[in-house]
Amino acid sequence: MSAVIVVHPPSPAGGRQVSARGETLGTAYGLTDLIEYLRRAGLDVATVDLYDEAIIEWQGGNHLVWGREPE
């Protein structure tokens, strides 16, 4: 089974694309953005484990790697 959420590698322009079940949710620039996308995807953000590989697949770095901040 693949993860529900995929956090893609950091973009050279900054941020990371986030997708759920193959649908792009948007670009996250940090955990605050990611939590909003998790909420929109119907996950209980109060109980989701960012390290649960059945829920979130981190590509190109973990929750500390986000790339350049937007200007």
Rank of each mutant, 00 (worst) to 15 (best):
R40C: 02
R40G: 02
W66P: 01
R16V: 04
G30H: 12
A46G: 13
G61S: 10
G42R: 05
V7G: 01
P10R: 07
L50N: 05
Y37H: 15
N62T: 09
G60W: 12
G42Y: 04
E57W: 01
I56A: 00
E69Y: 05
E71M: 12
S19W: 01
A54K: 02
I55V: 15
E57Y: 02
L34I: 12
I56D: 00
D52V: 07
S2Q: 14
W58Q: 05
A41E: 00
G26H: 10
P12D: 08
E23C: 02
A13L: 14
V48L: 05
R39E: 14
I35E: 01
P10F: 01
G15S: 10
A46E: 08
G30P: 08
T27W: 06
W58H: 08
A13T: 11
L50Y: 13
Q59H: 08
I35G: 00
Y51R: 07
T24K: 13
T32Q: 10
R68A: 14
G14Y: 06
R39H: 15
G67L: 06
V48D: 04
T32M: 08
H63M: 13
V45M: 03
Y29M: 11
L25C: 11
G22R: 06
L31V: 14
T32W: 03
G60H: 13
V45C: 10
T47L: 11
T24D: 07
T27S: 04
A54W: 00
